[in-house]
Amino acid sequence: MTQFQTETVPVSNNTGEPVIVATDVEKWYDNGFHVLKGVSMTVYKGEVLVVMGPSGSGKSTFIRTFNALEPYQKGSIEVDGIELAHDLKNIEAIRREVGMVFQQFNLFPHLTVLQNVTLAPIWVRHWPKAKAQEVAMQLLERVGILEQAQKFPGQLSGGQQQRVAIARSLAMQPKVMLFDEPTSALDPEMVREVLDVMRTLATEGMTMVCVTHEVGFAREVAARVVLMDGGVLVEENTPEAFFNDPQEDRTKKFLSQIL
């Protein structure tokens, strides 16, 4: 059995060291839209942080700043101790340590499942092909799609594709995993198989930031849940308190819509 991470850190309540520190992040889109209005958030090692919020509140934009897919104009973001300056040269160095799983999977359709998973380790980490393939096969076994290794993404179901996407990110042995609504594009019967993989990942101590509206998942594995609305963080709480005893009106309103 492969460990997703070499060292296992107990699910912490903010006692671990910080992996991502975002301070007063502000972002405007090119059309002048003020999407992030001073967001501060710290992600600690080994914890699962769930981000919720209404559509268009800036959740995706926010977590995409963590691996510099979106630039920001004010504030600072530190990932693994490295400041994400605006024209950072070692942008790729950060991206190697931060895995990301997209709503639309974004698998490479012209490559087989195995090639999807081995691509980055071979070309970015410069692993020998044999090693990359061995690790990839172990990961594919973990996410339960070993038999599909030689197929192309187009031949898999949505749930299978998303699990391949998770394996593809894990192959780079990232320190943090970002999930942007990983189950929203899936048919209901496939949501579980993806959440199961994420749950296992969480119990093994992976640091995760998940944008998701899966309440069950959040209750079970999240250390903290935050609510984002209109480009600001409205509430941050333990899942227990967040769902049972929300403090802010906006949280109450949001929960009444999704529960």
């Binding site: 897919l69 160095a93 490479f108």
Partner: peptide, 18 residues
């Protein structure tokens, strides 16, 4: 080619030429 393809590549640490 959908934008997501480049984003996925970037998020894996591939530089632009790769």
């Amino acid at each position: 080619v959908p934008r997501g393809q480049q984003e996925a590549a970037a998020s894996l640490g591939l530089n632009t030429p790769l």
